[in-house]
Design a protein around this nucleic acid. Structure first.
Lengths: 261, 261
DNA sequence: AAGTGGTCTAGACCACCCG
DNA sequence: GGGTGGTCTAGACCACTTA
């Protein structure tokens, strides 16, 4: 009974039929990326509801004037983000709610996005010191080599949340204290041309020592979250090592993970 | 000065030249996947050392008798895994050590791989109960709906490490206690045809209550790691909610993350 | 049997990096 | 300017799901 425009095959209606996408072939932005962004936006604001089928890739590609591989590339990027699910013989569906907005790995995300309105960061120490054994091992340097020591106190709403202690190979980066407090460490590294590639983190817990308690406004023996991280750039060079402590009463790591199949 | 076989262009030697790959076109395993596996193995055992260039994709594809997109698909999968880095105008390199063996997100990994030699798991409770408010909210059920409550004590070397408390929608799965102890929860879910898609985790810390301390062989007030997780299948349905506590003195979450560019 | 995604091919042109 | 990866096309056949 469905009325379809001439030449269109009779098929189940797809929510995509009513959407139109604006693809600019003169843009430097790749076509697959333009499509992916617009699909993501449509999912984001509900034009494509959870469970909706996207309609088959062939139709979609002819309607958009793209080749199928290009459309597939766009869809695949959203599958990788966890927004879509493909089933052979069935179709491609918008994933059922919940998952959206895959909060990035916190802590790193936190650092990357620092300098938002909420949290403020005060640089307590910013100096060059010889590397202790653990620092040297983590950064792949000789013991005693010069490293930049960075100690920062992060607060929200005027209350301390975390004490961040970072080590970087000396000379890797110009670490201006004022810019650090305004911009965040990772953004400065990115601006300096360092492309982060991977990081390794260990999250644990222990009781606060008297000194830690005093600095974080906690009681001695209070539970603290601890995190150690070594970050590498895309050449495999260790560019940062950090040992951080968080007030467990005011902070938790919250993250989403996708199960690779 | 380099002697090359007839017809080969004169170019920088690639470590790949001396390797040969066995591709079986009759195998049900996709060609790109066969190639990816063999490349990964070569990196793994050092035939391709960190920093080595892979040589350009065109040569590689002709040498292997594959099309360039197929070779690209293989390489891309290893880039996604963090084993290779591509640079336009330069080439594709093996990432400099360190990173290898991207330990999966622990905890989930831990559960997935449970039933290894080390850890043993004892099921303490396995029964059907009405869902409390927080459990109902996490699983997307009505309050009071029937859920399966699973309580397990995990130990290594005869020492308790964690107390795991899981809730699943009733009837989702046959949860035989003996199999649970031998196989692990996630493996049983997979065997039952449930394909995990994503999970959301929160990791925090707090001090042990007297009861928790007694069950985990800790002192009251000792620091504990806490983890809550909700897992979803690929239809977006919540299939598991868990609140877990770990002895901080014997356990830490250790994971690696790749920075998406 | 029909429809879907999964894989694969053989080309093409462009943007970027380097010497 | 020469080499690299990045993008894109227009087909093809296969495997799986559903009815």
């Amino acid at each position: 009974m469905a009325k379809t425009r001439a030449g269109a095959r009779d098929r189940a209606a797809s929510a995509l039929d009513t959407l139109h996408f604006a693809l600019d072939r003169n843009s430097p932005v790749p076509l697959y990326y333009q499509l992916a962004q617009q699909l993501e936006a449509a999912i984001e604001h509900g034009a494509l509801a959870p469970g909706n089928l996207l309609g088959n890739e062939i139709d979609l590609s002819t309607r958009l004037g793209l080749s199928r591989p290009t459309v597939r590339q766009a869809i695949q990027s959203l599958v990788d983000k966890g927004l879509l699910v493909r089933r052979r013989g069935v179709g491609t569906q918008v994933v059922h709610s919940q998952v959206k907005r895959p909060l990035e790995l916190s802590s790193l995300y936190d650092d990357l996005e620092a300098a938002g309105q909420g949290p403020t960061t005060r640089v307590v120490r910013n100096e060059t010191v010889p590397a202790a054994a653990d620092v040297a091992a983590a950064l792949g340097l000789a013991q005693g080599a010069e490293v930049t020591l960075l100690e920062r106190l992060r607060s929200t709403h005027g209350q301390p949340v975390a004490l961040l202690c970072n080590y970087l190979p000396a000379g890797l980066l110009e670490l201006d204290t004022a810019r650090l407090e305004a911009t965040g460490l990772y953004r400065m590294m990115r601006a300096a041309g360092i492309t982060l590639h991977s990081a390794r983190q260990t999250v644990g817990a222990r009781s606060a020592t008297a000194e830690e308690a005093a600095r974080l406004d906690e009681k001695e023996g209070a539970a603290l979250l601890t995190m150690q991280r070594t970050a590498y750039d895309d050449t495999g060079r260790a560019v940062e090592y950090g040992t951080h402590i968080y007030r467990a009463s005011r902070y938790a790591f919250d993250f989403q993970l996708l199960v690779r199949t």
